[in-house]
Simulated scan of single mutants.
Amino acid sequence: MNRRHLLAAVCLVLLALTAGCFGPGAISSEQLDQEPAEPYQWDTERDVHIAVQTNSAFRAVYNVSGSGENIELFRRDGFGGRNPLNVRAVRYRYPNGTVITGSELEARGGGIDRSREAVTVTFPGDEGGKLAFTAGATPKRFSLPVFVEGSYEVVLPSNRRVDIPIFGSVSPRGSTAEVVDGQTHIRWEEVTSRGITVQYYLQRDIPIFGAIAAVSLVIGLSGAYYYKRQIDRLREMREEMGLDVEVEEKDDGPPPGMR
């Protein structure tokens, strides 16, 4: 095998690793069974409860009783494709309240399989239950496909808001927002769209943005005034030099021979 073939083989291996195409078992037991940052909200009245964390992650609890035998977890990329969620701290709760870890879920007949496009979680048994996991999120913008239709609640970290346009927005429409103990709770009674998106801001950012806008306005006005003064000064200099004096041309009629 020459160097070119060896390099191509290495690239294929790296591509396979990053694409997550080693199939079942690609997610380690340590990753599946690690503890979440805070306890999952199992007793929520919503079909889906999502708590956005300050460390660029979120915790989610899905009522999967009516979702069939499995659920696919993924994100959409900018080209119409799908990428698997990097899930961790996976938990499954039976209807009787028993909670098991991700590795216990696999041991009891379920499965957590990662492919190039999604992480597929197969539930143990056919009575349904609730699935919880932790995954990464983008700071100040939470976006996720709708895996389960129904009622939703998204809880933002403390001192985050969505009520000022441009800085904050919520999609799809029809949501309500309420601040409880310093945290914004966004709720939908029914979500059937392809995804939800919440653009939010930190309260202390607003005075900073206001100060930046005020300074920019002062600089802009000062620049406009300076530019106007320069134009006026140039006009005065031209007048002093007689360059702006209009000379009345005498009309002697057509040249000789043309009269």
Rank of each mutant, 00 (worst) to 15 (best):
H185C: 04
E72H: 15
R114D: 02
E149A: 09
V119M: 04
R114V: 00
K250N: 15
Y200F: 15
L156H: 13
A211E: 15
Y92L: 05
L14H: 14
P254A: 09
D251Q: 11
I208R: 15
I186C: 11
G253L: 09
V52Y: 15
W42D: 06
Y92T: 10
S56A: 12
N83V: 11
R238S: 08
G68H: 01
G136V: 06
G210C: 09
S222L: 05
N96H: 07
Q199C: 01
G125K: 00
T101F: 02
C21F: 15
A118W: 04
G129A: 05
L73Y: 03
V247H: 04
R91H: 00
A214K: 05
S67F: 07
D205S: 12
Y201R: 03
L221P: 01
A211I: 15
I206N: 12
T54M: 11
I166F: 10
I71S: 01
G80V: 13
N63G: 00
V180P: 06
R4M: 09
P145H: 01
V52M: 14
E117K: 13
Q31H: 08
Y152H: 01
F123K: 05
A19I: 07
D163C: 06
R194T: 03
F147M: 05
T138C: 11
G257L: 06
G78K: 12
Y201V: 07
G110L: 03
Y92S: 12
A137S: 13
T184Q: 06
R235G: 02
A107E: 14
E239L: 14
A118D: 07
A89R: 06
V170Y: 12
Y227D: 07
Y40V: 06
D252Y: 15
A118R: 12
L131K: 02
P39M: 04
V155E: 10
Y227A: 12
I166S: 08
P165K: 07
Q203P: 03
I186K: 02
A8D: 02
L131F: 00
Q34G: 13
P84C: 05
R4Y: 03
T138L: 11
E240Q: 13
G109C: 08
E149M: 12
E248H: 13
I112S: 04
E153F: 05
Q203R: 05
G195N: 03
R76I: 04
Y227W: 10
T122L: 11
S193L: 00
V87W: 02
A60F: 07
G257P: 04
A26N: 00
G129P: 01
I196A: 04
H49A: 11
E104V: 13
S29F: 15
E178T: 08
V180L: 02
E239H: 15
G220L: 02
A89G: 05
H5S: 07
F74K: 10
R116D: 13
F123M: 01
R161M: 13
V119F: 02
N83F: 14
V155L: 11
G129N: 05
R187S: 00
L12Y: 11
G20V: 08
A214I: 08
R88F: 06
A19T: 06
L15D: 14
S115C: 08
G174Y: 10
P84H: 04
C11T: 15
F74C: 15
G257T: 05
N159L: 14
F167D: 14
V154R: 08
R141V: 14
G253C: 14
I231Q: 14
S103C: 07
L6C: 09
A177M: 10
L14N: 13
S151P: 04
F123L: 07
P24E: 11
